[in-house]
Simulated assay, not measured.
Amino acid sequence: MTASHVPVLAGELIEALDPRPGEIAVDCTFGAGGHARLVAERLGPGGTLIAIDRDPVAESHFEAFAAEVPCQTRFLSASFADGLRQLVAEGVKADLVYVDLGISSMQVDTWERGFSYSYDAPLDMRMDPEQELDAREVVNTWPERRIAQALREYGDERYAGPIARAIVAARESRVIETTSDLVEIISGAIPARARFAGGHPAKRSFQAIRIAVNDELGQLDTALPLAWAVLRENGRFAGISFHSGEDRRVKRFLAARAQGCTCPPELPVCVCGRTPEAELVSRRAIAPTAGEVGSNPRSASARMRAARKLREGTE
């Protein structure tokens, strides 16, 4: 069973993107189509929404979505990096490009996919069920050092070392098969006083393993330049992230394109000739309101950054 999907920062996304009738939009992570529906309603009959997602469940949601919205639609069954690469190769230019990173409610709440620490299920966590690497392989075959690095980098897990050691010790006597097995190992590796200090003790580790399984940060590094290439001049981009590593990447990418003159401050006139190719919607990340967090606790860590493309770059 899946809970209904609630798109985060929905009003803020629409305000930043300002969808208009007849425009072309690219939804890089369609999911259950929450954001896409709001955008599509504003594009109207003359507009087009291109949806990208590697999860086959998302494609089934898209079929119903396409029959109900007023604009033209197209679905690309691919990771958002591969989907954007295809659009660049086709020469597509869009007015709006946006990406909602992380995991959707339909994935978390589908217990048998093994994304959640709240359900007992086989260890999986693949967004694309066809890919080979899954969570079971990560916890049962990766070296201790690599597991600890993933927990630290992708989950900001303070006890990454002890958890990685506990995983490796446990798998010496049995294969770690289920989410409950992993939760038990993680909980036992964390000191009792800290076990529930920051929410569920397995929350950060599950996030880290999921990111590793799906190469989410690598996908983002590849996708950002492609998203910018698809965007036409005066087009708008927005990225919603749920992890500090994601947010840093989006922040640095947009900041680099919003930067103008790079000459040393002691020079009386600019000699580099660099002008900004992006205008930031906000210098700071846009966070959900207290009201949204109260009604949808999963939105608490969401951060959005957005920009308008002023010109084509020279890179």
Rank of each mutant, 00 (worst) to 15 (best):
E130T: 14
A212H: 12
V138D: 00
G199S: 11
L226S: 06
Q219D: 12
R193C: 03
S180M: 12
A192C: 07
S187Q: 12
R158V: 12
F196A: 11
G188H: 08
T141Q: 11
D134W: 01
I186D: 04
A150F: 01
W228C: 07
P225R: 06
P225N: 10
R152Q: 13
R146C: 05
D181K: 00
S180Q: 14
P201V: 11
I147T: 09
D215N: 14
I186A: 08
I211Y: 03
Q207M: 13
T179V: 08
P143V: 05
R152V: 03
D156F: 10
L133M: 14
K203V: 11
L182S: 04
G155F: 08
I167A: 03
L217C: 03
F196H: 15
E177Q: 14
P191L: 11
D181S: 03
R195A: 06
E216R: 06
G199K: 06
P225W: 09
R174E: 12
W228R: 05
D156V: 06
G198Q: 14
R210P: 08
W142T: 00
S205T: 15
R145A: 15
E130C: 09
E233L: 03
S180K: 12
I185A: 03
A223I: 08
L151T: 09
S173W: 09
R171V: 00
A166K: 08
V213Q: 02
S173C: 04
A227R: 03
N214E: 06
I185G: 01
A148N: 05
S180P: 00
V230E: 07
I176A: 01
Y159R: 06
W228I: 07
E144I: 01
A212K: 11
R174Q: 14
D221S: 13
